[in-house]
Design a protein around this nucleic acid. Structure first.
Length: 433
RNA sequence: GUGGGUAUAGCUCAGUUGGUUAGAGCACCAGAUUGUGGCUCUGGGGGUCGUGGGUUCGAGUCCCAUUACCCACCCCA
């Protein structure tokens, strides 16, 4: 083999792609129901969009971006997440000029230079939504409920919704100060990462998973201690709306997500059965991001779900996942003269919306039958010398192991009649429930 | 970026203290009185033992390096 796929990427091959198509179909369905429209943005952007949008002290920007200089000497980055592009498009395509809020969704590949492991890849796929133009805490709850609804539709259970408020520009400076005052005497007890975070981004220390940082952080101030009046009441309203929907959640005052743009609400959804990378989705409010990107003051909120991790969880929980789709009809021939007639018949069958195929390996009739069985074809149409002479075709029902002789002109009609229930299930996707 | 594990046929894996032509199951292909699938039986094709060095009379087996994959740290989806 000349070469292999780059590290941390994967091929989605027949037998697996059906699961992806199913997810894509469910994404389109739920987004339509919740009033979201799809947006497709470039897979690469100017690097500065992510520097400003995601935040230049984040791990994503500091060490995980695929950045390169293109032939026009521009610094280009393969998108590591979807929100920055959505904000850019919201401004550039003047969506802020229309009726608000603007509810968008995207679904596509993201790129981060991480060490691959279970549930973590360098090219991975996110489905996400973004809403621009509303401060309403009910929307925060809607967005979380939608994410949980999506998991539920796929059959996933036992997921945990963790929520927090990470404050706003009014109250965060006080929290930063309190945290720095608290941790500065214990600086040497912190992991090297957090020692740097103390000045750059002290909030992240309380969310650090290192044992020594957890110990050092015992009794440390949390977001809860410093929320301003507005943040606090917003958070209470969000919780109230989650309660209205009877949506279970856990408040986690140490939840600080790794993207700097969050204000107010932050949340994360965890799956326990997919390995160490248990975060299966997350999001939050970003009321300053549009401004940061050069737009008018505009509130926003969104989330992103990792499709690979969703599939991992679905496999782990034995959810129904569509497999390979099978053929409706296989055309078998015997003899050269019959092959021409069979080839024409094959196209007539396909023209009627029936999936059909034939042998292209010059196989014997017996081998063609064997192969037809493997394709899962429901019917086999046999055209040999005898049928050719009589102007008929044999149609064999593979499950019933019975076959009938049909006049050539009636073959399509016969198949349509006998496949009708199969075809109605097939239209537009796969049978999954 | 750090650590641990793995690498033999298309797939899952055997391969004894280094010793002749490297095996099995599954898969694939072909047959079982020549026009009929799944089961059974018989046969067949297919492997630079990840790659590059080294030790040795001799390396799939031991040593070093390298790459990839898996898992964990970290981070996040």
């Amino acid at each position: 083999m000349l070469t292999t796929r780059p590290r941390g990427t994967s091929d989605i091959i027949p037998g697996e792609v059906e699961a992806w198509q199913y997810l894509e179909k469910e994404i389109r369905r739920i987004c339509r129901e919740y009033g979201y429209s799809e947006i497709r943005t470039p897979i690469f952007e100017h690097t500065e969009l992510f520097l400003r949008g995601v935040g230049d002290t984040t791990d994503i920007v500091e060490k995980e971006m695929y950045t390169f200089i293109d032939r026009g000497e521009r610094s280009i980055t393969l998108r590591p997440e979807g929100t920055a592009s959505a904000v850019r498009a919201y401004l550039e395509d003047k969506l802020h000029a229309g009726p608000q809020p603007v509810k968008l969704y995207y679904n596509g590949p993201m790129f981060r230079y991480d060490r691959p492991q279970a549930g973590r890849f360098r090219q991975f796929h996110q489905f996400g939504v973004e809403v621009f133009g509303s401060h309403d805490p009910a929307l925060d709850a809607e967005v979380m409920a939608m994410a949980m609804d999506f998991y539920g539709r796929l059959g996933l259970t036992g997921l945990e919704l963790h929520i927090n408020s990470v404050g706003c520009p009014a109250c965060r400076p006080a929290l930063r100060q309190k945290l720095q005052d608290f941790f500065r005497p214990h600086l040497s007890d912190l992991c090297p990462n957090c020692q740097e975070r103390l000045e750059k981004n002290p909030l992240r220390i309380i969310d650090c998973k290192e044992g020594r940082c957890r110990e050092a952080g015992a009794g440390a101030p949390t977001t809860f201690d410093c929320l301003c009046e507005e943040c606090s009441s917003h958070f209470e309203a969000v919780k109230k709306h989650l309660d209205l929907l009877s949506l279970p959640y856990q408040v986690d005052y140490c939840l600080v997500r790794g993207l700097d743009y969050y204000t107010h609400t932050a949340f994360e959804i965890m799956a326990k059965d997919i390995g160490a990378q248990s975060s299966i989705g997350g999001g939050g409010r970003y009321n300053k991001l549009v401004e940061t990107c050069g737009g008018p003051p505009t509130p926003g909120i969104g989330y992103a779900l990792g499709l690979e991790r969703i599939l991992l969880a679905m496999k782990s929980q034995n959810c129904l996942i569509p497999g390979t789709s099978s053929l409706d009809v296989f055309v078998v021939t015997a003899g050269k003269a019959a092959a021409s007639e069979a080839f024409r018949q094959l196209f007539k069958i396909r023209g009627a919306g029936i999936s059909a195929d034939k042998d292209y390996q010059d196989r014997s009739l017996k081998a063609q039958m064997k192969y037809a069985g493997k394709t899962g074809a429901k019917f086999v149409v046999i055209i040999g010398e005898e049928e050719l002479a009589r102007g008929t075709a044999l149609i064999r029902d593979m499950n019933a192991k019975e076959q009938v002789s049909i006049v050539s002109e009636k073959v399509v009609e016969y198949l349509l009649n006998n496949l009708s229930n199969v075809l109605s299930n097939y239209q537009g996707g796969y049978k999954y429930d």
